[in-house]
Amino acid sequence: MSKPDDARTALIVHAHPEPGSFSTAQMSTAARALREAGYAVDVLDLYAEGWSPVLDRDGFAAEGYFKPQAEQLRAVREETLDPRVQDHLDRVLAADLLVFSFPLWWFSVPAILKGWVDQVFVMGAAFGGDHGIFEQAALSGRRAMLLLTTGGSRESFQPGGALGSLHDFLFHIHRGMFEFVGYRPLEPVVTYGPAHLSDQERAQALAAVRHRVTLAAALPRLTAR
């Protein structure tokens, strides 16, 4: 994807199986807000692409004992990554902002999105090898944001609420996925319980998403890459 030197790119990785879902409408709203803010927006719809979440030896020329990260590192060095993984990795490396769009399932991301992270946050390219972790990882100097929906209400996800603090459930994503490979996480954009909202309330929720994403898009660059 070509772009002017001063332009910025956002990659949205979307994980919802229903095109008519509120989650998908929320993703489309965020994409429009980013485009209007001057971003080139790249959308990976994992279900539409039929992405397999399984990381196994079939993606590598492994013989004998299979250690996934060692095989990733070898594939990067030998330039033998699976072409589909390489394409997605290239799109990650081209983006200034990464957005994960998903419904909160079992207090985490859907399996298809976790499997995407397993395969595309490649050792030797996103971290490790010639890179470190956290501030020394390959994606340092970029931002990442969660765009999600929940089944429960806002009150249920507050500290002391029936389900517990939402930020506690998101910690493993912010720290263990985003920060681990160098991203600086932004505050998540959340719509609570859209299935229980009226049409008017859903429209208001999408307007709030648009506003939050527009504010995030206006943040200055972190560092030159």
Results as ranks from 00 to 15, higher is better:
A94Q: 13
K3R: 07
L163D: 13
T150L: 02
A30R: 07
L146R: 02
V99K: 07
W106C: 09
G141Y: 04
P103H: 08
V122F: 02
L186Y: 05
R143A: 03
H14Y: 01
V213W: 04
L97W: 10
D96R: 02
S101A: 14
F100C: 08
A217Y: 12
G115M: 03
A162M: 13
S52C: 13
S165W: 00
S101G: 11
F60N: 04
V41Y: 01
V43D: 09
L44H: 08
D42G: 08
A195G: 11
L98M: 12
S108W: 08
R202S: 13
L89E: 06
R91T: 04
E79F: 11
S156K: 11
V120W: 03
H211A: 12
Q204G: 12
D118H: 07
V209P: 10
G128P: 00
F178R: 09
E187G: 12
V92K: 07
E71D: 01
A61G: 15
P19V: 05
A137Q: 06
D58L: 06
T80R: 13
M145K: 03
Q26F: 09
S140A: 14
I12S: 01
D58G: 08
V54D: 13
P110N: 11
A126S: 11
A162Y: 08
P220T: 05
D45H: 05
A70K: 07
F171G: 08
P194A: 15
P188M: 09
A40W: 14
A10P: 03
T149P: 03
E63K: 15
E179A: 14
E155N: 00
D82T: 09
P185Q: 06
S21P: 01
G152S: 06
L46V: 01
A75V: 01
